[in-house]
């Protein structure tokens, strides 16, 4: 059964895409959850929708817009956000929420004027991992590798800023600059995740695995690794389940994500009681 599934070229491509995206989404999502910024990540995915729609309207492939706009927006969000621990939290949430709504509206408008928009809209919103073509796959892999290289380069400073913003500031670290740089990488991760599960469901790929990992480990590096493993398991299991049932892949990926999260909470609660 499985070996039969693996013979399809589109399935191989999908598995490879899921691998690349899971590594990036698992790590970036973990850091977003640590910093309690998953909402900003959620907003970025909607901005990716606006970017992709605008690209379609311009007659381009959606990917450049899908990556470009959230990267720009990530820089902006990172720059306006105050370092943790000081005022501005609620106002920032409202601003991010409004940005999210506005992005969906802009995307809708672009699609309204673009031709052939119905199937495009569905695959943007809910993902189309089985329809990824070779060119997109290679672009995706290249972008993921570049983003991972960026993360590897800044990970020490980034952890310092996320976990100890006051100390980092006192040490002369440019806290906002680091955060803005990370949010740009988050924009890349969100766009990549949206290729798999669609912009509306990136939360399930970027937040469920890290939130589950969080309950299972007390060390950030282990946590990021567990998060990646869970994201990958979720995607690959989703592909298999979809192959067997013929349901949309995204449905299974989200379902496994929610299940892993609930399970991790139950296990985490038992660990706590020890």
């Amino acid at each position: 059964m499985l070996s039969q599934m693996l013979q399809f070229g589109f399935m191989q491509d999908a598995l490879l895409a899921a691998l690349a995206v899971s590594v990036l989404a698992g790590v970036v999502g973990y850091l977003l959850v640590l910093r309690a910024a998953s909402f900003a990540g959620h907003a970025l995915s909607h901005i990716a929708f606006a970017g992709a729609s605008a690209a379609l309207l311009a007659g381009w492939p959606p990917l450049p817009g899908m990556i470009g706009l959230p990267v720009l927006a990530g820089a902006a969000i990172g720059a306006i956000e105050r370092p943790a621990g000081r005022r501005g939290g609620a106002a920032a949430d409202v601003a991010i929420g409004l940005l999210l709504a506005a992005s969906l509206a802009v995307g809708l408008l672009c699609l309204h004027f673009a031709t052939g928009s119905v199937s495009a809209a569905t695959s943007l919103l809910f993902g189309n991992i089985l329809g990824i073509d070779r060119a997109t796959l290679w672009v995706l892999c290249a972008v993921v590798v570049a983003a991972l290289a960026g993360l590897a380069w800044m990970h020490r400073t980034l952890l310092f800023v996320i976990l100890q913003p006051d100390l980092a500031e006192a040490q002369g670290v440019r806290v906002r600059l680091v955060w803005a740089g990370f949010m740009m990488l988050a924009g890349v991760a969100v766009a990549a995740s949206a290729q798999i599960v669609g912009v509306l469901l990136t939360f399930a790929l970027m937040v469920a695995p890290p939130a589950a990992a969080q309950r299972l480990t007390r060390h950030p590096r282990t946590g990021a690794a567990v998060s990646v493993a869970l994201a990958l398991a979720q995607c690959w299991a989703g592909l298999v389940a979809s192959y067997l049932t013929d349901w949309p892949v995204s449905v299974w990926i989200v379902g496994f994500g929610v299940a892993a999260f609930v399970l991790a909470w139950a296990v985490g609660a038992r660990l706590d009681r020890r």
Binding site: V33, R35, A36, A211, H219
Partner: peptide, 22 residues
């Protein structure tokens, strides 16, 4: 620093992780 609200996720970490980050 003056005590601030810790993000919930940070509370799941061991304190040593915070020290090592800094």
């Amino acid at each position: 620093p003056q005590q601030r609200q810790w993000p919930a996720a940070t509370l799941d970490l061991a304190a040593i992780a915070l020290l090592e980050a800094a």
